[in-house]
Design a protein around this nucleic acid. Structure first.
Lengths: 154, 154
DNA sequence: TAGAAACGTCAACATGGCTGACGCATTTAT
DNA sequence: ATAAATGCGTCAGCCATGTTGACGTTTCTA
């Protein structure tokens, strides 16, 4: 029983830190987004388009794990706001390829920077030796399928 | 510029790992919740009530950071489902104090256990020396005000 | 040339937030 | 003792973000 207790205790310690930590992390960007009339869903799209440079719609769909209807709405709003552009895949005319406009890149960067200070602070608190553990921990938390979607660590 | 690049790069590495990691973490509980007709909002309430043993409504409100209208709806559903009970604070009749029923405690535990395996796996991957870094990192990510709301780290 | 694929789109609905306004005990301050 | 403040619960309407299902179009592929 002591084992199970410790395990629950340890699990709770992580669970609540993840909850509060993730909330603060997203909150930084949410404030910037709100001032532009956008939401978290727009941020996620901007983020993954920027990180890839350009990305086919179907891949963004798989990355975000939402339905095409949900993504289409977000993309339409981003394109209306001149933040995202869609062009055709030259090798397959059915496919769309998404890129950010200059304005879109600027916004994405400002959203990243809104979160960067917090991340840097947290990494600094954990110390230089903690960084690898933190990356490993978060990667291990992910669904295996999603691991192929992230960039290399450092 | 190299500095800013590295920093953005490091920030993105954490940002996407947090996104995918948190999504997987919540997904474990979401599946159990869906089978009971409940949502993530119910889980959060159950979690913080259980962790406190019993908790005044106003404190749960502050912890969750949502409006009383949003919480009331969740609590009403939890009380209808006989998972949560409300009683009066003996020292101040205006205040309500929330506790879980036996059924509520059982559900909360099963939700925790749905997430525990993933957390244990991730901690194991990070190694025994990583645990402290991970706690420190996540706590540093949090809003300072929220740090008072979490339990001590082992 | 038929069928599959990769979309976009319309419609209806669920969840979980929000604001504002009101009411009602209960406690506190005058 | 009474007035004001506090801690709720509640009704109503709205928003953001997701879902399913159905349908149409263009473009590849067998």
């Amino acid at each position: 029983m002591a084992d199970a207790f410790m395990s629950d205790f340890a699990a709770r310690a992580i669970a609540e830190r993840l909850f509060f930590g993730y909330r603060a992390f997203t909150g930084d960007a949410d404030r910037v987004l709100a001032s532009r009339g956008l939401g978290r869903a727009h941020h996620r799209a901007l983020y993954f388009i920027e990180r890839a440079g350009s990305i086919p719609v179907h891949e963004l769909l798989a990355t975000l794990g939402i339905t095409k209807q949900a993504l289409t709405r977000v993309l339409r709003e981003l394109m209306d706001a001149q933040l995202v552009e869609r062009r055709q895949d030259p090798t397959d005319g059915r496919r769309g390829i998404l890129t950010l406009t200059e304005t879109g890149r600027a916004l994405e960067l400002s959203l990243l920077h809104a979160q960067r200070a917090r991340i840097e602070f947290a990494l600094a608190q954990a110390g230089p030796n903690g960084r690898e553990s933190i990356h490993t921990f978060l990667e291990a938390l992910m669904e295996p399928d999603d691991r192929a979607r992230i960039g290399l660590a450092l």
